[in-house]
Amino acid sequence: MKINAIIDIFPQLLKGLGVTVTVLIASALIAYFMAFIAGLCRLSNNIIIRKITGFYVEVFRGTSLIVQLFWLFYAIPMLFGIQLGSNWWTGVIAIGLNYGAYLSEVVRGSIQSVAKGQTEAAIALNMSRFQRMRIIIFPQAVRMMLPEFGNYTIQMLKGTALVSLIGLKDVLYYGDIMRSTNLSQAPLIYLLVLVFYFILALPLIWLTRKGESISRKGVASG
């Protein structure tokens, strides 16, 4: 009987897989992009650039994702007088900007924590500012970033569940639909939803551990 129920529920949840996965991939790409842009901007010599990125980072880190999601959901069409085409974009932008802000701190911190001696050795070899960044600092900083990027990607996966709240038909959305028609099945439904997310998280967990072992080698920090 339980087995039958699982066989009923599983394909229903599967229908939401596409939305969950595409939202995750797209928002992760936006987040990584924003992380590097904002992280580097915060290390800029130009104080105006630093202040503007600082404002972005603190606003998105200081308020919660769910509030940002709702805010953008109502604000984007209002403020810009446009419909983005779909709520899919709203969800992706909210998650991407939110985690981009967190990850920009990871980028900034990693670059700053590459040991000063590395820059000095590069200067002694007469490298330009740009070469120092490209050849010496950045490759080491990126290794240091890997575990945190992995962790935050798992956070992003968890965050994608929120898009069901703005009507996107993701895994949780189909779970909610089934629960509302068959309340007594709720335990099994939500357990399976959780298992679904966990299965999606497994490769990310594995990649994060991989990133940890890479980051332990090949960097001089201090």
């Binding site: 040991a115 001696g117 000095e120 050795a121 010496i136 080491q140 080698k217 090949g218």
Partner: peptide, 9 residues
């Protein structure tokens, strides 16, 4: 340098 400062990567 005193502390070598080799590029570890």
């Amino acid at each position: 340098f005193q502390h070598f400062n080799l590029f570890p990567h």
